[in-house]
Design a protein around this nucleic acid. Structure first.
Length: 282
DNA sequence: AACGCCGCCTGATCGC
DNA sequence: TGCGATCAGGCGGCGT
């Protein structure tokens, strides 16, 4: 599932594919994922505008457009569990679970948002993004900020890391990975994480995300589709396996820890899987 | 008010 | 072999 690194890699592929393209049509196939819910309203805002930039905030993609009259338009996208975004060349059939189809002009290319499980979003409203905590890879996210977010909370530190108002972009996979790298038990009450451990965790969060972006950005996301234009996490056969292989604990229950050989353990916290090495994490 | 928990979804996998 | 049950989980919303 896409977390900050996968969204960032997707952003880097999408931006050059979209910037300066003019929107000529908007079709909504899955209205529940879209705000406003009708193609008519979405069209009124978007059609005629050009893409100016594709940004990212946490796990959200921020599409900036501008109308000919200078009016700015912003769309906030979220991939949920299974969402994908792709520039689809003319003639390529729409994916089965296409939710929004945006026409990009005379050549017939389309920008498509699809989502099998329908947890994703495609909104003109920017509300959810305003509530997000600091970007973990930016300067504002310091060890002191992390310490303050953990202080006083009895919640398990792993559950706390998933709270997007604390740090934005860390999901279930990289929460487990960061805690493993920091040698810290996911079960530890947030308030009981010591100063030195906070510093290690802060560093570990940044490292696991940074490395995943770095390795993911070497993936040629557009080559397997037989040419230019297909950009999305998971588009390439084996791309998600690639992401998976780098992981030290996530989804590795029963397999030996890469550091000490102890079998990796799976536990459930807040109704989600957590993976840890009982030997390395205290 | 912080925190736990449900519901939304469908495809893959499991068990009988 | 086939089919129903279970599982996966980000996040909004609701209840305590």
């Amino acid at each position: 599932m896409p977390e900050l690194p996968e969204v960032e890699v997707l952003r880097r592929h999408l931006e050059p594919a979209l910037v300066s393209r003019r929107i000529t049509s908007v079709d909504v196939l899955l209205p529940k994922l879209v705000r406003p819910q009708t193609a008519a309203e979405l069209s009124r805002a978007m059609v005629g505008s050009r893409f100016e930039s594709v940004g990212r905030r946490g796990k959200y993609l921020l599409f900036q457009m501008r109308q000919a009259d200078g009016q700015g338009v912003q769309v906030v996208g979220h991939l949920g569990m299974t969402g994908r975004m792709v520039r689809l060349p003319a003639g390529v059939p729409l994916p089965r679970h296409a939710a929004v189809v945006i026409g990009l002009g005379e050549d017939g290319d389309r920008f498509v948002f699809e989502d099998v499980r329908r947890f994703g979003r495609f909104n003109l409203e920017t509300g959810p993004v305003e509530a997000l905590g600091p970007e973990p890879l930016e300067e504002a996210f310091t060890a002191a900020v992390l310490a303050a977010a953990l202080a006083g909370s009895t919640q398990a530190v792993k559950v706390r890391l998933l709270d997007q108002s604390m740090v934005s972009g860390v999901g279930n996979i990289y929460a487990s990975e960061a805690l493993f790298r920091a040698g810290l038990s996911p079960r530890r009450a947030s308030r009981r994480v010591k100063r030195a451990e906070v510093i290690r965790l802060h560093q570990a969060i940044r490292e696991v995300l940074q490395e995943a972006i770095h390795e993911g950005s070497t993936l040629p996301l557009d080559s397997a589709a037989g040419g230019e234009g297909l950009f999305y996490y998971g588009a390439v056969e084996g791309a998600s396996d690639f992401y998976q292989e780098r992981l030290r604990v996530y989804d590795r229950a029963g397999r030996p820890c890469v550091a000490c050989g102890t079998p990796i353990q799976r536990i459930v916290q807040a109704a989600r899987s957590t993976f840890l090495c009982p030997g390395c994490q205290r």
